[in-house]
Structure formats: structure tokens, C-alpha cells
């Protein structure tokens, strides 16, 4: 087995996350899919760090986690306030900004 398998697994999980963003309508689940995409990128970073023998990749993954945490906090707050006004957590219901 080689490190490529980690990368392929990360690619597949990333794609599954992306497809999830496209097909799920519950905003929270969409958010989870985004988290999955971020995580698979993290796996890639860690794998490349190991492959190239530097710790920088891990630092990147660490920063990604921090940013993801901040993003989740703000995103969930937005979902809450939308839910409060529209009584819905579906991303399709927030479609006022259109032609």
C-alpha cells in the first residue's frame, strides 16, 4: 500500500461532500457536507506533510480546522436567524435574491 490511497480516499470523500452540498436541502446537513470536504482536504495536507517530511502541512491542516470552527459558528448562527424569521432550514426557501 502507498500514500496514494490516502489521497484517493480524500478525493472520494471530498466529492461525496460536494455532491451532498448539491443534493441536500437541509442547511445543517449542507453544512456537514462542507465540513466533510474540509476534512478530506485536511487528510490530503497531512498525507503530503508526511510524504515530503515537513510539518508545515500539519500546520495548514491546523489552520483549516480553526477557520472551519469559526465558519461553523457563524454559519450556524446564520441558519438560526434564518430559521427564526422563515421557519425553515431549507436552503431552497432562501431564494429571494433572484431575477
Amino acid at each position: 500500500m502507498t500514500l496514494t490511497w490516502y489521497l484517493v480516499l480524500a478525493a472520494i470523500l471530498f466529492t461525496i461532500g460536494a455532491v451532498g452540498v448539491l443534493v441536500r436541502r437541509n442547511a445543517i446537513v449542507v453544512f456537514m457536507c462542507v465540513e466533510l470536504m474540509l476534512n478530506s482536504v485536511n487528510l490530503t495536507l497531512v498525507t503530503f506533510a508526511r510524504a515530503h517530511g515537513t510539518v508545515d502541512g500539519q500546520i495548514m491542516a491546523f489552520f483549516v480546522m480553526v477557520v472551519a470552527a469559526a465558519e461553523v459558528v457563524v454559519g450556524l448562527a446564520i441558519i438560526m436567524s434564518i430559521y427564526r424569521t422563515r421557519r425553515s432550514a431549507s436552503v431552497d426557501d432562501a431564494n429571494l435574491l433572484k431575477y
Binding site: V21, D92, A94, N95
Partner: peptide, 10 residues
């Protein structure tokens, strides 16, 4: 520009 964010994501 149909307002559906999922279309944009697509």
C-alpha cells in the same frame, strides 16, 4: 439566476 443556492453550487 434562480435564487437557488444549490444551482449556483452546481
Amino acid at each position: 439566476q434562480n435564487g437557488f443556492v444549490r444551482s449556483y453550487a452546481l
